[in-house]
Measured scan of single mutants.
Amino acid sequence: MTVLPKDIPGDSLKVTVGTANGKPGDTVTVPVTFADVAKMKNVGTCNFYLGYDASLLEVVSVDAGPIVKNAAVNFSSSASNGTISFLFLDNTITDELITADGVFANIKFKLKSVTAKTTTPVTFKDGGAFGDGTMSKIASVTKTNGSVTIDP
Rank of each mutant, 00 (worst) to 15 (best):
T99R: 06
A64V: 07
G22H: 13
V17R: 00
D90Y: 06
E96M: 00
E96L: 00
K125M: 00
P9M: 13
I84G: 01
L97P: 15
C46F: 07
G133N: 04
S76Q: 04
F109Q: 03
T142H: 08
V43N: 00
A71M: 09
V43F: 07
S12D: 12
A54G: 13
N74G: 02
M135R: 01
K69R: 10
P152G: 15
G51S: 10
F104E: 04
A38N: 09
P121L: 07
P66N: 09
T83R: 15
P5A: 09
K117P: 04
A129S: 03
K108T: 08
K6E: 09
Y49I: 01
K108S: 06
S147R: 06
E58M: 14
A20Y: 12
K39M: 08
F109N: 02
F86Y: 04
V43M: 06
I8F: 13
I150D: 14
F48Q: 02
E58I: 14
N81T: 15
S55H: 13
D7Q: 12
T115I: 14
T119R: 11
V3P: 11
T27N: 11
K137A: 01
D132L: 00
L97V: 04
T149N: 14
L13D: 05
F75N: 01
T120G: 06
T144Q: 06
G25Q: 13
I84N: 02
P24L: 12
G44C: 06
K108G: 04
L13P: 07
D151P: 15
K6W: 08
S55Q: 07
P24G: 09
A38D: 08
N106T: 06
K23G: 09
I107M: 11
L97E: 01
S147V: 06
F75G: 02
V60M: 09
K41H: 09
A72Q: 14
E96H: 00
A71V: 12
T134F: 06
L87W: 03
S76R: 02
V37I: 12
T134I: 13
T123H: 10
G102R: 03
G18E: 08
A129W: 02
I84M: 03
G22Q: 10
P5M: 06
K112Y: 03
N21A: 14
N106D: 05
V60W: 12
I98F: 04
K23L: 10
V59W: 09
D26H: 12
P5C: 06
A100N: 07
V17N: 01
V17D: 05
D151Y: 15
D151V: 15
K110F: 02
K117T: 04
A72C: 13
G127L: 02
A79F: 15
K137P: 01
K108Q: 06
S140H: 08
K125Y: 07
I93T: 02
T99G: 07
T16G: 07
P121D: 05
K23Y: 13
I98C: 08
D26M: 09
S140W: 02
A105P: 01
P5V: 06
V68E: 12
F124Q: 02
A105H: 00
S80N: 14
S80F: 12
D63Y: 07
G127R: 15
G146C: 05
I84D: 02
Y49N: 01
S76H: 06
N47R: 00
V62N: 08
K110Q: 03
A20L: 13
A20W: 06
T29H: 10
A71F: 08
F109K: 00
D26Y: 09
G127Q: 04
P31D: 13
T144V: 05
M40E: 08
P9G: 14
D95F: 01
G22E: 14
G51K: 13
G18N: 10
S61W: 13
T142S: 05
L4Q: 11
T33Y: 12
G65N: 07
D36I: 07
N42V: 08
D26E: 09
C46Q: 04
V59S: 09
N91T: 04
V30S: 09
M40V: 08
L111K: 04
T29K: 09
F48N: 05
D132N: 10
D36W: 14
F34H: 06
D26F: 09
A71K: 12
N74M: 02
G131Y: 00
V3D: 12
D126S: 15
G10L: 13
